[in-house]
Design a protein around this nucleic acid. Sequence first.
RNA 1: GGCUCGUUGGUGAAGUGGUUUAACACGCCACCCUCUCAAGGUGGUAUUCAUGGGUUCGAAACCCAUACGAGUCACCA
Length: 549
Amino acid sequence: MNRKELADLLLPGITKTIEDYEKMYPERNVSEGAIITRYAPSPTGLPHIGNLYQAVISKKLANQTNGVFYLRIEDTDQKRSIEDGITKIIKSLNDFDINFDEGVTSESTEVGLYAPYIQSNRKEIYWAFAKYLIENDMAYPCFCTEEDLDEIRKKQEKYKSRIGYYGRHAKCRNLSIEEIEKHIKNGDKYIIRLKSPGNFEKKFVFNDCIKGKMELPENDQDIIIIKSDGLPTYHFAHLVDDHLMRTTHVIRGDEWLSSVPIHTQLFRMFNFKVPKYAHIAPLLKDDEGTKRKLSKRKDPEASVTYYHEQGIPNEAVILYLTTVANSNFEEWLDHNKDKSINEFKMEFKKMSTSGALFDLEKLLNISKNYLSTLKASEIYDRILNWSNEFDLEFKNLLEKYKDKSIAIFNIEREQAKPRKDYACYSDIKNQVWYMYDELFAKENKNYEFQKITDKEEIKNILNTYINEYYNDFDDNETWFNKMKELAEKLGYASNMKEYKLNPDNYKGNIADISNVLRVALTTKATTPDLYSIMKILGKDTIKQRFELL
RNA sequence: GGCUCGUUGGUGAAGUGGUUUAACACGCCACCCUCUCAAGGUGGUAUUCAUGGGUUCGAAACCCAUACGAGUCACCA
């Protein structure tokens, strides 16, 4: 039996060769400098914020170079795959406006010339590549059982040598064809291992797009390329897929950094062009003084659904992640307020080589700024949408009082320097509840009167104001002038500067008066512009609320 | 434990030998603005770049050691 026949025996039923595949999936016709990259998750659950982060970066880089951004599903670990995994990934990414130029589009559909994009559907392709290696004595079947491997490891631990399946520890590496045949006749289970040509003593140097020049030992491990279920390991699938799909840049988390020698070795054994690698540092979390990777199990903010539940707009999350990726983005945005985020040029060189702490506070600030740029009607639509899922009481009020609600959200909004007091949708009800009679009626009222607390004086101020001064049709200036008149009539200073000079000449000042009016209307000492609030509530409501005191 | 990478303020960071007595942003503090907030404005917030040593006329930047942190060492990706 020769090696070709051996390969057929080990991986039977394969008709195509690697040359056939080479022709089926030709080089892409893209312009110089175009980045072809992918998002390649395992369908094991909803994306993690770190996955989103990688997707944002990859998509941006592909888009800005007129490249290709595609979705490939890495489901070679069948045990971990979950039901509807693909749907969930696509949906949650789409929510963040991350779409793909090609690849998987649902559990059973895909678009693009480099299909299939789901690894479990590419088995015969991997086998063809594995066969090539076996035929050329660059891979071999390994019949070691779990116990055999255990024994090897224990021996290595005992003699303090490196752990692994390599060199003289690789028992099956030099099996003769006859011995292999015997094992197979015996029905022994096998996997396929790479016959690594590497030397651990030698240094392997490469250039990472983000981390720069790296020096690692060459790989000498005879890594598994085809598992006992016939599917490839990550390493082998990466080689085959990223070569055939003509990926130019492999953008992934930096936990992969130390596997680059394996990957490069694989590409070289086939004489393929090695793609460029960009290893992204993880998002970290401060945990009692030490930094650790954000974890989906421990940290609610690691889950992408967290932002949806909190009512943080997806756009803000994207803006934040872009800022973390390239910290000069913020400054760029500040100087290019009218431009679209698409015009920003992201650079590998600007990415941090060590992990960044995920800063929720900063995210909220970005969100606050973002929300302040929206029109009142847009805010209304978004809150309605959010409330529909998380606060039905508020949703009903929003629907019942649509115009009024928009007016409320418009207080100090559509202007050059808008108010910025909403950081997320879930904030808003807490800030505007007193504008709705239904909510005001059921609230346990804690009136925050400050300087003036005397009941009689308060009543006097309220009555004088509503009977002698207030008018729904006054403009802002008239309204304020009347406030001044009211203050003076009752013995309070209408001018703050004057009051500060001679405080003893007055009972108090206009701020004290407006505190009374504000608190009587809203119970709170701090609210947005009082004039706007009064105008929206209207004289009848104002009167009613004054009478409660 | 082996190998690898990293360490600039409360946070994200800019910065690769001299214009850095360390940019910018978030946070915090103070003051200013025709009412309270928010916003906006002004100023403050690291005598110093993990620590120790060295190279140099000169170092956050180059070199060495130490400490700390992270990643990796699966028939998981």
